[in-house]
């Protein structure tokens, strides 16, 4: 198993490449999902405030 990680002595370069690849891809996925989550929260806040305004109007 250990010679698998040594990659014939090129382990640093091979795993350095794949590690950064995983970090970039995982990073991008996390960022895009974060963007979606905060957006949803923002939209529902807008929606609630609109609903509240309608209630106030009908009440007054």
């Amino acid at each position: 198993m250990s010679d698998f990680f040594s990659m014939g002595g090129y382990g640093l370069y091979v795993w350095g490449s794949y590690l950064v690849a995983i970090v970039c891809i995982a990073g991008e996925v996390i960022l895009v999902f974060n963007r979606r989550r905060t957006l949803m929260k923002h939209l529902s806040l807008i929606h609630q405030s609109n609903k509240q305004e309608k209630i106030n109007e009908t009440a007054s």
Partner: peptide, 28 residues
């Protein structure tokens, strides 16, 4: 990933439209 990001951009730019409002009603 590009489709997910496009959907986010659509929502951001169309947040004032009726269909996004309905989306909120059904819990997006």
């Amino acid at each position: 990933v590009i489709l997910i990001r496009t959907r986010a951009i659509i929502l951001e730019r169309e947040r004032h439209t009726a269909w996004v409002g309905e989306l909120q009603l059904q819990g997006a």
